[in-house]
């Protein structure tokens, strides 16, 4: 709890409280992995139970999903650049890349909502079949995480503008970076096991 600052380390690791927060967040991500693993397990069990409703091949449009994937993967890359700029103590560059990340994330989210509305208009709702229940809840949980991440990052950008780069704001930015990359990893699994596997089955 002491406020000793070790300037030899990167900004976000300089205080003991910061180091604890970052470790705590890694452990939280561990819990998130269990959460998504359970949802993937549920989808694995229910994904082929269509109950006479539409199947994966009837719904998925690979082009749109591909664009979503590229948007989110790119946003992970730009988030990495933002953290790189933070390490160089370039507040302005960091903010620019953070905003680009959020725009890409927002684009992803827009496309996902479009996709969901499209499905619902086709009569494929989460009440239709076990497959669609598990599909919407798995994807929806990921989408909700992206939404919360965007809201959280906006709060952080305001704080960065107010306070500049301090050990505390740097730690907060670093942690949201971890979170963003994690969502990207989850998406890669969704892309592979939900979309690609669904289209070839």
């Amino acid at each position: 709890m002491s406020a000793k600052i070790d300037t030899a380390l990167p900004l976000e690791y300089q205080t003991e409280q910061n180091r604890m927060n970052i470790l705590g967040f890694w452990i939280f991500l561990g819990a998130e992995i269990v959460l998504f693993a359970t949802l993937f397990g549920v989808y694995g069990v229910l994904g082929h139970r269509h109950a006479g409703g539409p199947m994966q091949q009837d719904l998925f449009i690979i082009k749109d999903v591909m664009i979503q994937t590229m948007l989110l993967l790119t946003s992970s890359f730009t988030m990495g650049i933002a953290i790189f700029e933070m390490r160089r103590h370039q507040l302005k560059g960091m903010l620019v890349w953070l905003v680009i990340t959020l725009l890409l994330g927002g684009g992803f989210l827009y496309m996902e909502i479009q996709e969901f509305t499209h499905y619902v208009h086709q009569g494929a709702t989460m009440q239709t079949s076990a497959f669609l229940s598990s599909f919407f809840v798995l994807l929806g949980t990921h989408g909700l995480h992206v939404t919360l991440g965007i809201g959280w990052a906006v709060l952080l950008i305001i704080q960065l503008l107010q306070r500049g780069l301090t050990p505390v704001t740097a730690r907060k930015t670093f942690i949201i970076g971890l979170y963003w990359h994690f969502l990207d990893v989850v998406w890669i699994f969704i892309f592979t096991f939900v979309y690609l596997a669904g289209l070839v089955s």
Binding site: L35, V42, M126, Q127, T128, F131, S133
Partner: peptide
């Protein structure tokens, strides 16, 4: 987190009419 998911799916089944654990709809 497993319990979190199980309870959330229960809530969805009971309140929003999904088919995770139901007999109908492939649950």
């Amino acid at each position: 987190p497993i319990f979190t998911v199980a309870l959330a799916l229960m809530t969805f089944d009971r309140i929003f009419g999904t088919h995770f654990f139901t007999i109908s709809g492939g649950g």
